[in-house]
Amino acid sequence: MTQPHLVNMQGVSKSFGGIHAVKGIDLTLDAGEVVAVLGHNGAGKSTLMKMLAGAYQRDLGDIQVHGQSVALSSPAEAHDLGIETIYQTLALADNLDASANLFLGREIAWRFGPFRVMDQARMRDQTAQVIARLNPHFDALDVPCRSLSGGQRQTIAIARALQFDARILIMDEPTAALGPHETAMVADLTRRLKSQGLGIFLISHDVHDVFDLADRFIVMKGGQEVGSGRISEVTKDEVLGMVIMGRCPAQIRPGPGASMLDEHGAQT
């Protein structure tokens, strides 16, 4: 391949106080591709993605973005590389309004002595525009986020990821708090962004949510890879078996986290 991967992770590991949350994961992502990161709660998917987002620092391994090795020592550095994240917790400051949250940490501002003075009128204006594209009925722009509904809060979190020309988008359980109608909206959005050439990591513990959206997948268990491949090679049931039992089907190359099968088909 002449073109380098958009993201190329090699042997990425992270432990918290002696517990291996993520152990030796290899994973790539290309432009215009959706990769599902699957596994139970606690399988290490969110930790892996937070390392890419700069929120955690990896202990071992290498991450390349556009073929360049990167440190990813802070969320700001990830932002500069075009990596945006929609966190499962949404990462909103509940006491601030939509516009403040949308631009939080990346305010439109000019320097004035030791301070940076915000251009609030422009930020409000842009917020209104980007939110109107996502959800035309959203008009509560001036109230603190704590008084908004789950869907409205999600809208702000998504709008934030879109506002800054992301090249790589991480969506951590983006539909967990949403109703069916809003879930469909997020699915539409995901397809649209993919067609615009973004690379997307879609994190989920629910196989059904992502099966139709993703091109490739990786299943994690206990911080290790169970297996990875193209969605077209597997059935939902086989992926479910990987998530729940760690059992890797024959057509998929097993990772170090896969359970070994003996010749009678029983798990060891």
Partner: peptide
Amino acid sequence: ATTFGRHSYAIGGGMEASRLVG
């Protein structure tokens, strides 16, 4: 009007969120 002020409020409203957004 300043980012410093806004970040102070954001930290009080959500320490973890403030860290995650950079």
